[in-house]
Design a protein around this nucleic acid. Sequence first.
RNA 1: GGCCGCUUGCCGAAAUUGGUAGACGGAAGGCACUUAAAAUGCCUCGGGCUUUGCCCGUGCGGGUUCGAUUCCCGCAGCGGCCACCA
Length: 875
Amino acid sequence: MASERYNPRDAEPRWQKEWDARKVFETDTSDPRPKYYVLEMFPYPSGRIHMGHVRNYTMGDVVARFKRARGFNVMHPMGWDAFGMPAENAAMERGVHPGAWTYQNIEAMKAQLKIMGLSLDWSREFATCDVEYYQRQQHLFLDFLEKGLVYRKQSKVNWDPVDNTVLANEQVIDGRGWRSGALVEQRELTQWFFRITDFSQDLLDSLDDLNDWPERVRLMQKNWIGRSEGLSLRWEVANRDAATGHKDITVYTTRPDTLFGASFLAISADHPLARDIAASSPEVDAFCEECRRAGTSLAALETAEKKGIDTGVRVRHPFDPAWELPVYVANFVLMDYGTGAIFGCPSGDQRDLDFARKYGLSVVPVVMPAGADKDAFTVGDTAFTDDGVMINSRFLDGLTTHAAFKEVADRLEATMLFGTPQAERKVNFRLRDWGISRQRYWGCPIPVIHCDDCGVVPVPKKDLPVKLPEDVTFDKPGNPLDRHPTWRHVACPCCGKDARRETDTMDTFVDSSWYFARFTAPKEDAPTDKAIVDRWLPVDQYIGGIEHAILHLLYSRFFTRAMREAGHVGLKEPFKGLFTQGMVVHETYARAEGQRDWVPPAEVRFEETDGKRRAFHITTGEELVIGSIEKMSKSKKNVVDPDDIIGSYGADTARFFMLSDSPPDRDIIWSEAGVEGSFRFVQRVWRLISEAADALKSASSNPAKEGTALSISQAAHKTLKAVEGDFEKLAFNKAVARVYELVNTLAQPLTQVAEGKADATTVGAVKDAVMILIGIIAPMMPHLAEESARLIGHDTLMAETPWPVFDPELVAENEVTMPVQVNGKKRAELTIARDADQTAVEEAALALEAVKSVLDGAKPKKIIVVPQRIVNVVI
RNA sequence: GGCCGCUUGCCGAAAUUGGUAGACGGAAGGCACUUAAAAUGCCUCGGGCUUUGCCCGUGCGGGUUCGAUUCCCGCAGCGGCCACCA
């Protein structure tokens, strides 16, 4: 038979149409079968999908199709994380409305996702910029406000004086705004905050139960929440005049054990005491100003010198009223952690040590390594920060660090200062409340109104949505909502007088903090349908990039808890299983002069001279600089458009390649050569099956239990079992390898069937094996699976065909082949009955010629037999 | 600076986490088919040697064990997250 090539351009759209027509992937939430919710992190509609999306959504699709075949009622939705800065930038640069730009991008990207053949339920699609979505988000905001989970406070922000907007920390590069390049200022602004810190302990504790999350992500969240146990401790001021009337200073410490090593107190430039002193001291005031200016820049902190200024205030040591210590304002003390004041123990903290050396303060070692010589132990330029044994610490001497902590805490909790205990044990968290105010147009409006008489008034729910106005201009910097002629003017819902709308919008991370819940009932009038959301959450398998390991996932965990308090869901952990897939990376290419002039890979050709790989521009011929391998990004132009790949090889090839070779959580370097390998495999499978199709069509599927065809059936059923395990563990690269192996095994039998040289038993076994093969490739290469199945007479869609069932008898081994070692070196192989007992194995092993010749008559000292594994003869 | 992870052929990787190291794929080389090319099929493919076979080999140095890619200690290189967090 003449074998034609498989043509994905013809086959793929055909099957996609059929799936659509039968609504195979639409989820009926009331279907009684067990549910399975698969979700990939929804994309920002930047305009085109990239290889990272292809990888992410392919993995999710394999899981969705596999679980569907396994009999689960699967939900696999898709939507758009559609608010954000790029749309406003486009508006500023090209004069298009952010909404128009965004929806246009969504259309383009949706078309790209469709040709990938993903098993998505598009009937649940929404964008976060749809008023139908953000209206419910405003509803949630009002509920949170009522529950006390939202509040306003003054806070310091990075202010870009050119763009007139607040910048996130990540948008400040070397102290300058990332767009304008202007020096960023610190400003005090009144902002809205979510009370995520209410849940600090619970968010931390619950991490232990998230067993299906990567350990790495749990650890990152744990560190981010940053719990520490310490002591809040008051120091009595010795000279109240100098301290402008302050009686005491409260510090937070995790090392009360080192109290006898203290040589100074340091307070933040924003500490109330520092502010009071600054009012009358120009020197202190100037120093505080300097601290505030330098405080932000990230990289600068690395090299920043520890600086301080003596305030003149003196405090008494808690255990020795005669011992007075100086109080400094220091540039390294943060106002928003602990109490904004510390005591410095130079011998036990590197920073304190640097500071003490600079200002000539005493350095008394108080902790030494266990077993060290007390008299010989000194502290030079390196502080001793580990646990150890107390020295030079009066009643603490000889105690361990841990015991000393307890002793100091117990004593000071029992000591009274001005009528209250001098210290109390305190748990501190690094986690801060979540500031969500953005001075931006393209975001969800915060639904409150400011009235001169009534203050901050929530928008009544009946007045929702607070819609973004369409007629806005981007010709000037700043927030277009602020200068809109009418939008912000509104009557106070309380008193009816003229009032103003809040013009800040919400951080886009808010939008993505509950979309997974909305997908379960996307048309519901309330934010969720309680019965449905409680049945469908948590998401069973969530898949996305590691870059969201902290913020998005933590915010979503908080939001679910907040929604539970407001009665919208009944659980607190939104994602049962989490998988973080690796990035798709690629070399970068740049024109030699002006290294930032990037060239896309599609315009590069390569030559090899003297073993050195050189890159040239495809049209101009100029030599290019081959740069580092980086995440595919628009700015570096090192992107490969998925459309090109899918256009030339088809969706199945692109999908299969994405799953091949590398473990899914590892970064992959994109290579065109690898795609060709996957394409060859697609063609090979097609050719082998189509050549044997006529014979297989009329045959009945029958695994062989004995005879020459037995090995065919065993190979197929063993592969089936193994691939099931691989898919459950998302080990797609292993599944791919096993599929290759199975096809290698089936190649010869299939050719025999095609040539009519196979007996009836073999044809039956081959048909059974081929149906298994099609079944296991269906989640990965769904179009090829449909096409092949139809070819051999399978007349239902593979998308609706249950997962094949392996025959335990064919998977079990009757005989095992074990290596036989002598003194740990392999000398022979032994094939023996699976259930052979120890003595039988020992005897058989010693009877082997190869073993006998190595032993050379020597008596074995010991024979180790690990059943079904290995034999080791020790002489 | 703190915490965490990784290191296996030319390359991506596998090894049932203490039991035959390198499955499977890619690249490369050879052969067959062909007028030729493509496509396809077959073979070789960690290093070395005195090549029926033997020795070495999982970043480096030690250790535990009958047996270590896997466990322990130390070192080096690469990467990630957090970063003046008291």
